[in-house]
Design a binder for these strands. Structure first.
Length: 638
RNA sequence: GCCAACGUAGCUCAACGGUAGAGCUCUGGUUUUGUAAACCAGGGGUUAUCGGUUCGAAUCCGAUCGUUGGCUCCA
């Protein structure tokens, strides 16, 4: 007798051997129809899995995250079958689900082209329409190895798989694939799907290995869900900083300097607003600021270790037979400043910031708008302190990160700790101490974080702050990196209480990361609708007709003199047209004036995105705007 | 760097072997307007670059440069 305990505590008794699907049917016909799989004590199983004894069972439907993953995973299998049907020589490698979809890595010498997608989808539709049962076959590891003999990829997958029982799934018709499962019960249940793209991907993610073809697909319960997903992607594209940057005339790129951003006047307003705020907060947190040259003698980079560890990413130039390296990082220059005079423990912690322009040669295929460039400005800082001060300093930097991100309305970022990479300098012991100090600070703040094993910089472990762009791709902004190595290489010293010379600890940190990337993310975060304190043009005076030009000009001057970033539209366009244009330029405030306003010395202000306006006195309006800008207020309400 | 795709006017796109077009922007004119586009006219392109095939190339082929989506790498 099977005793099945459901999530709500209800108990169903049945014959041993009853399947999960049959249990669902006992609970209700609706649930049975919606069921895609089941879960026994945390383990996902197929609906046709027999159940015996006392178990806790939950039916998984498409309302569950796991249900959607199963749907997508099954869709990936159907896609694999379709690809095998179209290209019999194709070898299947690995086909997991990803956010909103799945991919399958295929080893096939014929390139799969976007033109082929319709054929693949057509074949998939055929397979789905045939509604073939998807069956699980289990066997021992040894039998599984025999079954995949001669297929290097599947053999590799078996060898990497955990557990003793290997499973294959078959749709009949000779198609089968090694897979942990579970899957939907038949090929007709894979919902609405679409092939999205194809791209190269190295086997095992190793650039030395063969490049496979990675075919991306997406799958949803219904066509309507699929359509709304595709629509969402279209909407997300409109928030893309590369599109908005062009549309709003913020920045541009040119063939003459790939990866080098050109900031236009409006983009510079955002840039300067960000760094004005940045300086204000850094002053509060006890930072000093320096500036060091972008090019320094090659010998410095031998000393710093960059030559050995980072040379392939650096630019070099030779003048008068002396080779200079264009700096990829600011630290060596900062260390020369430190060494320019003796230091006492009394100065510590010494927080030295630098908005440093660095150049890094990046592979051509990785550049991406403002968020991945070859020249960028880091909001760098180096903190020199004693080992005892490390944790408090890291906590201080974390506080600063939170204060700055908050002003931009960034709440949704993730924190990662990266540990010792293969290519590194410094002893294991030093790495342990440094890594533990970083973790300790995060735990002290009660923050969740993820560990990235072996992902640290060559000179020390780090904490990174990541945020996602409009298409949900993660990008790193802030970073806190401990460095016990550089101070030794540069023989940095300070005089301690006991009058002995000691080596200080050094912390590298950036909050915004790179100004370029940060501004790119900022544009996407706001979808181009910058808050008042960042908006290139905060308001535009627009007249009803030229009868009010004189008042409008006077008003413009008054607003300009009050420090507003104001524009004026005196064209003989109708006011409707002026409003449309102002919205296209994402102006926070549209200051409409006609005879009425001229008579009462007032302004009628329409707020971006709202279909209403408000009349108020000029001085009152200026006071509100000033206060919002000073406080980095993200709202526009008057 | 690797795989695939794409480069047409300042912008968004059309033309897909037979004289390169439209809308917006821009310029001039008319209009004098009350909250998401008034009207008319005009200007603007060696179709990324270089080479090839062809009577004829934006269109077909090759190379180079750039961009896009991934992979690897990274702020």
């Amino acid at each position: 007798m099977a005793k099945i305990v459901l999530p709500d505590g209800k108990v169903i008794e049945a014959q041993d051997g009853i399947t999960a699907g049959e249990v669902a049917l006992k609970i209700g016909a609706g649930l049975a129809k919606a069921a895609v799989a089941a879960k026994i004590g945390g383990k996902l199983i197929d609906l046709d899995t027999p159940i015996a004894g006392e178990v806790k069972l939950a039916i998984i439907t498409l309302k569950d995250k796991e249900g959607m993953e199963i749907l997508r995973h099954s869709s990936a299998h159907v896609m694999a079958e379709a690809i095998k049907a179209l290209w019999p020589e194709a070898k299947l490698v690995y086909g997991p689900t990803v956010q909103d979809g799945y991919y399958y890595d295929i080893d096939l010498d014929t390139p799969i082209k976007p033109d082929d997608f319709a054929r693949i989808e057509g074949k998939m539709a055929e397979i789905a329409k045939a509604d073939k049962p998807i069956k699980r076959i289990e066997m021992s590891r040894a039998d599984a190895l025999k079954r995949v003999e001669g297929d290097r990829y599947k053999t590799d997958n078996v060898n990497r798989a955990l557990g003793d029982v290997m499973s294959f799934y078959t749709h009949g018709d000779g198609f089968e694939d090694l897979c942990r499962g579970p899957h939907v019960s038949s090929t007709g249940k894979i919902g609405a799907f679409k092939i999205m793209s194809v791209a190269g991907a190295y086997w095992h993610g190793d650039a030395k290995e063969k490049m496979l073809q990675r075919v991306y697909g997406t799958a949803w319960p219904t066509q309507k869900d699929l359509d709304s997903y595709l629509n969402m992607l279209e909407e997300a594209k409109k928030r893309d900083h590369r599109i908005l940057g062009k549309q709003l005339d913020l920045f541009s790129f040119h063939e003459e300097g790939p990866g080098f951003a050109f900031f236009h006047p409006k983009g510079m307003v955002i840039w300067n607003s960000v760094i004005d705020f940045w300086r204000k907060v850094h002053r509060k947190y006890g930072y000093q600021e320096i500036k060091t040259p972008i090019m320094l003698n090659e010998s410095l980079w031998h000393k710093s270790g960059h030559w050995d560890n980072y040379k392939e990413n650096m630019y070099f130039t030779t003048v008068d037979e002396i080779t200079y390296a264009v700096k990829p990082m600011n630290c060596p220059g900062g260390l020369l400043v430190y060494k320019s005079r003796p230091h006492s423990y009394k100065e510590f912690p010494m927080r030295v910031a630098e908005l440093g322009l660095v150049h890094r040669y990046e592979a051509s295929g990785v550049m991406h708008g403002l968020v991945r460039v070859r020249q960028f400005t880091q909001d760098d800082a180096h903190i020199f302190c004693t080992p005892q001060q490390i944790e408090a300093e890291v906590v201080g930097v974390i506080n600063l990160v939170f204060e700055i991100y908050k002003a931009f309305g960034f709440g949704d970022f993730t924190i990662e700790v990266s540990t010792k990479p293969e290519k590194h300098i410094g002893s294991d012991e030093i790495w342990d101490i440094a890594t533990n100090a970083l973790k300790g600070a995060l735990e002290h703040k009660g923050l969740q974080y993820k560990i990235n094993e072996g992902d640290g910089a060559f000179y020390g472990p780090k904490i990174d702050f990541h945020i996602r762009d409009c298409l949900n791709r993660p990008w790193q902004l802030g970073t806190i990196q401990l460095d016990f190595s550089m101070p030794q290489r540069f023989e940095l010293t300070y005089t301690d209480k006991d009058n002995t010379e000691k080596t200080p600890v050094m912390l590298h940190r950036a909050i915004l990361g790179s100004l370029e990337r940060f501004i790119g993310i900022l544009i996407e975060h706001f979808g181009g609708n910058m808050p008042l304190w960042l908006a290139p043009e905060q308001m535009r005076v627009m007249t009803i007709s030229e009868k009010t030009n004189e008042y409008a000009n006077g008003l413009y001057k008054k607003l300009f003199d009050a420090g507003m970033r104001v524009g004026i539209d005196l064209t003989d366009e109708k006011v409707n047209g002026k409003i449309v244009r102002a919205h296209a330029d994402r102006l926070p405030y549209m200051v409409v004036v006609g005879p009425k306003e001229a008579e009462t010395n007032s302004v009628n202000v329409r707020i971006r995105g709202l279909n209403q306006s408000k009349t108020l006195g000029v001085d009152e309006f200026v006071a509100i705007v000033k206060s919002k800008v000073e406080n980095q207020d993200l709202g526009l309400e008057l």
